[in-house]
């Protein structure tokens, strides 16, 4: 007997869209109903076709014209495009998972607020830097709630940043810092994003700094261990590579993320950290629908 799966639509056929497609097709509860872009000959569309997936170059209109094609929509286009897509998807009553830094929907970091997000029609996945660092900062704030300022530096391989990411770098930087503040209640946060073109490409590398006077390193290490275990349930390549350490009057934690190598090779952990989180949201939504 064939198991019933919930159909998803993916709009946007860049790095994020393609990596999502591979992950969705592996899911036990999801399957791709439509993979839609704007260019019938894009690499992404070609890949999807070769996988036997239904494709379209009519972007969101492929869903407007045929709403039954999916229940869940991943928007992997750009922040500007999502502002146009959001009201359309709302009207169609599609559970929408926004991969862009548009900040339209409810911001979601699954290990912190999955439940609440399942009740929203539009969920925003913040940014890859946000997905990576918010849980670490949450742990720091749990042990040192008086912390007034945190900062993150997210370095990713140039090859993993597609054109939409580049043309949204401003929204990306802004949304990452606002996401950190919203989730962890730290009064001030700064995000710094670096693209590094070196070959072979760098593994996604994130540094979290916090202004803490006398950090309790032992307690913090314990809390981080617990939170890392939770993250690794859906992003197995997440690990802390240095710290927590107090140096230069700042608390420092450094982590890196290796991806599963689904669309881009393992160095593109930035795709996995956000896409695994998004797929987790979609799967949870699907499971409840299938009950």
């Amino acid at each position: 007997m064939q198991k019933i799966k919930i159909k998803v639509g993916i709009i946007g056929t860049g790095n994020i869209g393609c990596d999502l497609l591979v992950k969705v097709q592996r899911s036990k509860v999801l399957e791709c109903g439509i993979f839609a872009g704007q260019n019938p000959n894009s690499e992404g569309i070609k890949m999807a076709r070769s996988m036997g997936v239904n494709t379209s170059y009519k972007s969101i209109n492929s869903i407007v014209d045929n709403p039954e094609i999916c229940d869940i929509v991943f928007d992997a286009t750009s922040a500007q495009a999502h502002l146009i897509h959001a009201p359309i998807l709302k009207k169609l009553n599609k559970f929408t998972i926004d991969m862009t830094p548009s900040r339209v929907g409810k911001m979601c970091v699954p290990i912190l607020n999955l439940e609440e997000c399942l009740n929203s029609q539009n969920v925003n996945m913040v940014t890859c830097g946000g997905q990576d660092t918010v849980p670490v900062i949450w742990a720091i704030m749990k042990i040192h709630p008086q912390t007034k300022y945190v900062e993150i530096v997210s370095s990713i391989a140039s090859k993993s940043a597609g054109i939409a990411t580049r043309e949204n770098i401003d929204e990306y930087t802004q949304t990452t810092s606002e996401g950190i503040k919203a989730f962890t209640k730290v009064p001030n946060a700064k995000a710094i994003i670096i693209l590094n073109p070196s070959e072979p490409p760098i593994v996604m590398h994130n540094t979290i700094y916090a202004k803490v006077d006398k950090p309790n390193i032992a307690k913090l290490s314990g809390e981080l261990k617990r939170i890392v275990a939770k993250i690794r349930q859906y992003v197995p390549g997440f690990r802390i590579i240095a710290g927590p350490v107090f140096e230069n009057n700042r608390l420092t934690v450094i982590n890196e993320v290796r991806g599963l190598g689904d669309f881009l090779p393992v160095w593109a952990g930035n795709l996995d950290i956000i896409n695994c989180a998004a797929v987790r949201v979609a799967e949870e939504y699907a499971r409840r629908k299938l009950l």
Binding site: S155, S198, I254
Partner: peptide, 17 residues
């Protein structure tokens, strides 16, 4: 060796450790 770019001061800590 790591071909770091401007702004990657955090890698210095990583490398030194």
């Amino acid at each position: 060796k790591r071909k770091v770019v401007a702004g990657q001061e955090d890698i210095i800590i990583d490398v030194a450790m």
